[in-house]
Write a protein that binds this DNA or RNA. Structure first.
Lengths: 170, 170
DNA sequence: CAGATCATGTAACCTGTTACATGATTTC
DNA sequence: GAAATCATGTAACAGGTTACATGATCTG
């Protein structure tokens, strides 16, 4: 694959939990080639820019396997929205409610995107590649995304109720 | 408050969704003072290092309020664990199961921490400061933390079942 | 007597984003 | 005729972590 191709794949699969810009991908591919994890060959094209096609090496495959089974720590949560909730007492009731209603809407849209677009993409990938075993894992990541969004939506709805029920002069 | 005090407060309240090191706090306090959001006075101490005590200004309070009601985008998810699941097909069944079982354990511990330690801290803060209204918001952030961990735990348990039930030669 | 606590920082580094640069072909 | 697509990068900047530096007092 080329860096450009890789970016396409990022954008259509793991985009929702890991992404990268081309300005990061290109230097990284170079480093990985220097480290012996990839080889590169140039595909000369006439009416388009030449493509630098990368192939994984045995060393690269080994490193990938080592990394995949290496234990991971929990991803740290870093969410500015939660800080705003934490300091919600500094805002008027309507201001903080507006904040939560907006966040609720964003997560509802994200949930819809997972349910419609991403589910189709997973199915198409399985059909196109015949990778049934892989499809199970793609489905699992998608399910986590759906569960995550549902969690936010439920929390927002409950938070709105609680705040609306709050005594104004409390 | 001093930078050191601030760090203590970070570590005992919003630590779970936002944290900062002293090496980031000290220069930032300086910038905020230069920007007019804080004033600083030195508290000279004999047998301990001097303390630089910061106070928020009217401009600072205004900026805080502006920031708190400013809309936030969803925090991007960036979790290496999900990449490992996505490429789960590259691992042996037992390797990927070990990965998930470990992640399950980490999130169970985190949930226990929220339920025991953090809940107490919120209660103590409310009792010590008498900030009942604020306590509602501290409770809301804690509830999101609990919900988040429960979501991961349920997902892990289901994923383990599904993978265990998988055909080995699929 | 070792390590934690109090209290301040600086410098180097790593990761990732934004902006800049190039240029032909294809699509609306 | 403008904007997207294909295809490669570099440079500057922003945010955050790790390591280094200092030094007294308190705790186990």
């Amino acid at each position: 694959m080329t860096g450009y191709d890789l970016k396409q794949h990022f954008d259509h699969s793991i985009y929702y939990f890991w992404n990268a810009k081309l300005s990061q991908i290109y230097p990284t591919l170079n480093q990985m080639r220097e480290g012996g994890w990839l080889t590169m060959e140039v595909d000369y094209q006439e009416d388009r820019p030449n493509r630098k096609v990368y192939h994984i090496t045995e060393a690269g495959r080994g490193e990938l396997h080592r990394w995949l089974q290496e234990p991971v720590d929990m991803a740290p949560v870093r969410d500015a929205f939660l800080i705003k909730i934490f300091f919600g007492g500094k805002l008027e009731k309507e201001e903080i409610l507006a904040q939560i209603r907006r966040y609720l809407m964003l997560h509802q849209e994200q949930l819809a995107a997972y349910q419609e677009i991403v589910q189709q993409a997973v199915q198409q990938n399985v059909e196109a590649t015949g990778m049934v075993r892989e499809g199970v894992f793609w489905g699992l990541t998608l399910e986590m995304g759906i569960r995550y969004e549902q969690g936010w939506i439920e929390w927002c709805e409950e938070a709105i109720e609680k705040i609306e029920a709050m005594d104004d002069d409390q």
